[in-house]
C-alpha cells in the first residue's frame, strides 16, 4: 500500500512537472492568457485608519484581520471599550468625546472596521463639519482619532496627547489621478 502511494506521488510529481514545462512553452498560444484560478484566503483587512493597531490587543490582531466586518462588533466591542477606558481618562465617569459618544458608543462604532463613504458630496474623515464621509489623502486622521480618544467633550482635555502636531504629508498630493505623490 505504502509503495503504491509513493508511486502515485511520483506519477503526480512527474505530471505536474510536465504541466509546468508546457505552461512555459512560448509556442503554445494558449499560454498567453494569465491563470486567475484558485481560492484566495484572507490575510489582512482595513477600514478606518489605525483601528487594529490602536484597539486590538496583540493576541487578537491576527484574528481581527480575519473576522468579517459583520461579525466584528459582537467579537470585539467589549474589548475595545475596556482598552479605551484603560487608555484615556477622557471617558471616565461617563465622559464623552466631541461627537457626544460615551465609551460604549464610540467603540461600538469603531469595532466594525469599515470606512463610511458618502457618494453625495465631500469625502473627509473629519473637517470640523463633515464627520466620517470618507478618507481623503490630506485628512489628518491621527489627530482626529487622538482628539476623539483623549480630547473629551470639547477637544480641550489632555492637550498634550490629543495632537501629534504633524498636520500634513511631506509631499504635495496631485490634483489628478493617481493623486498620490511620486515616490522618494
Amino acid at each position: 500500500m505504502m509503495k503504491n502511494i509513493k508511486i502515485l506521488a511520483l506519477v503526480l510529481t512527474v505530471s505536474l512537472m510536465t504541466f509546468n514545462c508546457s505552461k512555459d512553452d512560448d509556442n503554445n498560444v494558449k499560454s498567453n492568457a494569465p491563470d486567475f484560478s484558485g481560492t484566495y484566503v484572507q490575510e489582512d483587512q482595513m477600514g478606518r485608519p489605525a483601528v487594529n493597531t490602536v484597539f486590538v490587543a496583540s493576541a487578537d490582531k491576527d484574528t481581527y484581520n480575519i473576522t468579517t466586518p459583520s461579525s466584528q462588533n459582537a467579537a470585539f466591542q467589549s474589548k475595545f471599550e475596556a482598552n479605551l477606558l484603560a487608555l484615556s481618562p477622557a471617558y471616565a465617569n461617563g465622559g464623552t468625546n466631541a461627537l457626544g459618544q460615551d465609551a460604549a458608543t464610540f467603540t461600538g462604532l469603531l469595532a466594525t472596521d469599515v470606512l463610511n463613504v458618502s457618494l453625495d458630496g465631500k469625502t473627509t474623515f473629519f473637517d470640523g463639519e463633515n464627520v466620517l464621509t470618507g478618507r481623503a489623502l490630506a485628512d489628518d486622521v491621527i489627530t482626529v482619532e487622538l482628539l476623539l480618544i483623549f480630547g473629551g467633550e470639547d477637544f480641550s482635555e489632555n492637550p498634550g496627547l490629543s495632537n501629534d502636531n504633524v498636520d500634513a504629508n511631506d509631499k504635495t498630493f496631485l490634483t489628478s489621478f493617481p493623486y498620490l505623490a511620486s515616490p522618494h
Binding site: 490575510e43 489582512d44 483587512q45 482595513m46 477600514g47 485608519p49 489605525a50 483601528v51 487594529n52 493597531t53 490602536v54 486590538v56 496583540s58 490582531k61 491576527d62 481581527y64 484581520n65 487608555l87 470606512l115 463613504v117 458630496g121 465631500k122 469625502t123 473627509t124 470618507g134 478618507r135 481623503a136 489623502l137 486622521v141 491621527i142
Partner: peptide, 28 residues
C-alpha cells in the same frame, strides 16, 4: 498601541510582508 499607525505592520501574521495593507483611502 499604535505599533505602526494607520495599519502598517498591524498584526504578526502579515507584518511587513507583501500582503500587509498599510492604508486605505476612499474619496471623491
Amino acid at each position: 498601541f499604535f505599533i505602526i499607525a494607520a495599519d502598517h505592520i498591524d498584526a504578526p501574521a502579515v507584518a511587513g510582508g507583501n500582503s500587509d495593507i498599510t492604508d486605505f483611502y476612499a474619496f471623491q
